[in-house]
Write a protein that binds this DNA or RNA. Sequence first.
DNA 1: TTGAAAGCGGTACCAA
DNA 2: TTGGTACCGCTTTCAA
Lengths: 365, 365
Amino acid sequence: MPCVMVQIPKPQPARKPRKTRTPPKPRESAAPSPVPPSPVPTSADVARLAGVSRATVSYVLNNTSAVRISEPTRRRVRDAARDLGYVPHAAARSLRAGHTRIVLMPTPRVPAGPLYSTLFNDLQWALSGLDYTVVQYGSVSLRGDDAARAWAELRPVAVLAPPDLGTQGVEVLRRSGARAVITLGPQRVEGAHALLMDHREVGRVAAAHLVERGRHRIGVVLPTEPGLDHFAGPRLEGVRLAFPGTGAAVFELPLAYEEESAAQLVPRIRELGLDAVFAYNDEYAMLLMRALHDAGVGIPGETAVIGADDLMLGRLLRPRLSTVRIELPSGPELAALVDRLVRDPGAAPESHEMLRARVVPREST
Amino acid sequence: MPCVMVQIPKPQPARKPRKTRTPPKPRESAAPSPVPPSPVPTSADVARLAGVSRATVSYVLNNTSAVRISEPTRRRVRDAARDLGYVPHAAARSLRAGHTRIVLMPTPRVPAGPLYSTLFNDLQWALSGLDYTVVQYGSVSLRGDDAARAWAELRPVAVLAPPDLGTQGVEVLRRSGARAVITLGPQRVEGAHALLMDHREVGRVAAAHLVERGRHRIGVVLPTEPGLDHFAGPRLEGVRLAFPGTGAAVFELPLAYEEESAAQLVPRIRELGLDAVFAYNDEYAMLLMRALHDAGVGIPGETAVIGADDLMLGRLLRPRLSTVRIELPSGPELAALVDRLVRDPGAAPESHEMLRARVVPREST
DNA sequence: TTGAAAGCGGTACCAA
DNA sequence: TTGGTACCGCTTTCAA
């Protein structure tokens, strides 16, 4: 319900009709601005009001140390700037400077869990604190290469990107002046730094724990929700990797995040004779535990269950849910890393494994 | 663990030593580029390679319809651009154009729940789809006014901001050319559009529901976690508002998100003789229910419990958790609104209430 | 059909 | 201590 409240009179003169193409530029002789001055004041306006040159305005407002400006002049300039409400134009500045402080970050495709989104948020704050301008891009319908070109238009000093950027994309961005191109995901890309998050590790430690507990027929929940397969696949693979020559067997358990789907899964678990389930994460684990409980399956007696993410809710369940705690670097840490890479371009590409996983054993296994 | 992988030879000549101040600009006579050409190619480079003027390059690359360029020329220009890996410079372009497509959005201060962050994400995607450039700002340690000035440097075409921006800030941004300044939060600010999210509504419907169920002594959980008071306060107020002349009484229940804190709360609830609790949200409700259950308090017999957010976990609890479902506009809706406001600046400020709340009654009340 | 050139708003060199 | 001015890269008249 749009409730109109206040009328804004300023019709905003479109800003274009300012005279263009006037070599001598006589500046409206006399007449103390019959037209309101340029909608948004420039340093030239400040200079005029203060009775100095644009150069001086620049010196004063930037506290240029290589140049000494008299105190009275400084005051006049500052006052003029304040009176006019002058704000420098970032684009003009960086055009002249030849570089920006823009860090490009992708908008996550799916709402990817609290850990991930918290990290993203913290990173943004930290980068802002380092005086970077964080630009979120969500390149709709642009395939890798075109996307890279679109991003390069902003001349970012650093780019965080998913690895599907490709070698081509990395090259495009580097040639556009990006001092650090950093991929964020499972693989690395040639020529770019890599922040790896190997979710196989999550499955690996979960499986190791279950085997240690004497379990040998292990189900792995695969969420059917789109977007999650990105994480689920590697976690499953990690489980498989944990069995070098063990007699243990792994079974895939597709599960939608609905009670009905969980209920349907129970008979399957029984038929297969699974003595343990790695439930993808704590939320799916809770869903599954409810279904198992309702069906009279003993946990962990008959079937052990382990989740991941170490959410509070796991502690509230009965039996208390064993889980895999995932640790990611902090936002400030990551920001510092980005900053370092920016400061030292030309450095050889670095790879960092960011994901650390460890089991928090409780009652359900 | 930084594992070095590949050596990048390009030492990036810092781009500055390019000759400055040379009126005739003879361009390194002869010698087919003994120095690698300008690190990042410009339209002038493309023009030179294609043997045309920069104007023509611009015409071709932008498909300027007001001008007809011969097909052979077009091809030469396009080929040259491709060979050089030319990417236009967004800052230069918008400097010339006199406006940007930047939409400024705040980085949320706290990881503010899935609803909020999902909305934010969707909005970013939708805005990207509308060809806006989304810039996240997280103005560390800049008080309202200075912050506004810092943001104005980017010359955003639209700004989403918390209402603590202030009238001053709105004015600064408008004068810097922002065509839409939109506040996002409980209050409105003069001169700006407002997207209101009145969380009192959440408390109001919860309380109304409890009263309808015959409850009269109602506890309201106040999370002690910082950042949440922003939502908790209004929700509490909403509960109070729901009792015009009812004999019902409201009691505040501070609660930290820990089992121990919940356990300590139970005796308090008993002493006060509360017959219902609005638990802030589903997660706190689950925490509280566990504590009540462990203490042998009957739900809903002795004490009813209602949460908010309608998380899946509420359906898995026993008794099933009643909750308040909160509905927010979709990202695309919001993006369309922003777009409309941008297209029609000068329009009178609009206020939109975005939050819709309704009770989902289940077994716990 | 194409090119020359003026500027967009700042910065920084050089001369005064 | 200050001013003049050439640029940054791109768009867009205006003239040829």
